[in-house]
């Protein structure tokens, strides 16, 4: 668990976002923010990942898929919800297509608000999560 905090590999799952949050996540990998300094890597397969980044409203179609992706991940792992959409459905609130918020489908460990959140905000959120997990240990 201690090693996990030093090398969280990130898998990115969009459950119907407007794609802006996803672009901001990729910004974290750019030279300006460079999260590889903390050992974070973006991986291609949910099996390799330790952190699941969820963006977007949980649409009717994507809810079962998101659940399956979570089940496919090797435990222990954490879930981070990114963007107003995944926190409280944001500008899509009341949409016919988004019956349930993300945290009713997945056990979310950290919420990062913003529409879209800045990369700084994401890094700050993840650092807080790491501190929380360290405190829990």
């Amino acid at each position: 668990m201690k090693a996990l905090l030093k090398s969280p590999w990130v898998f990115h799952l969009s459950t119907g976002s407007c794609n802006n949050c996803d672009i901001e996540i990729l910004d974290c990998l750019t030279p300006r923010f460079d999260i590889e300094r903390f050992g974070m890597l973006l991986v291609g397969s949910a099996r390799h990942a330790d952190v699941l980044l969820v963006t977007g409203i949980m649409t009717r179609q994507s809810a079962p898929a998101a659940k399956r992706v979570y089940e496919q991940m090797a435990k222990p792992c954490v879930v981070v919800a990114i963007g107003s959409c995944s926190l409280g459905q944001g500008i899509f609130k009341g949409s016919y297509n988004a019956p349930i918020p993300v945290d009713e489908v997945l056990p979310v460990d950290a919420y990062i608000p913003g529409c879209p959140p800045k990369p700084e905000a994401m890094i700050a959120g993840v650092v807080k999560l790491i501190q929380k997990l360290q405190g829990a240990k």
């Binding site: 090693a3 090398s7 300094r37 090797a74």
Partner: peptide, 27 residues
Amino acid sequence: ARVQWRVGPPWYQPFVDMVKLLGKETI
């Protein structure tokens, strides 16, 4: 990382990765 103008991981990163992977679930 340097080629891409980034800072890059600390030297013990690969070791930490290995320890972490060894501690995870095998599916």
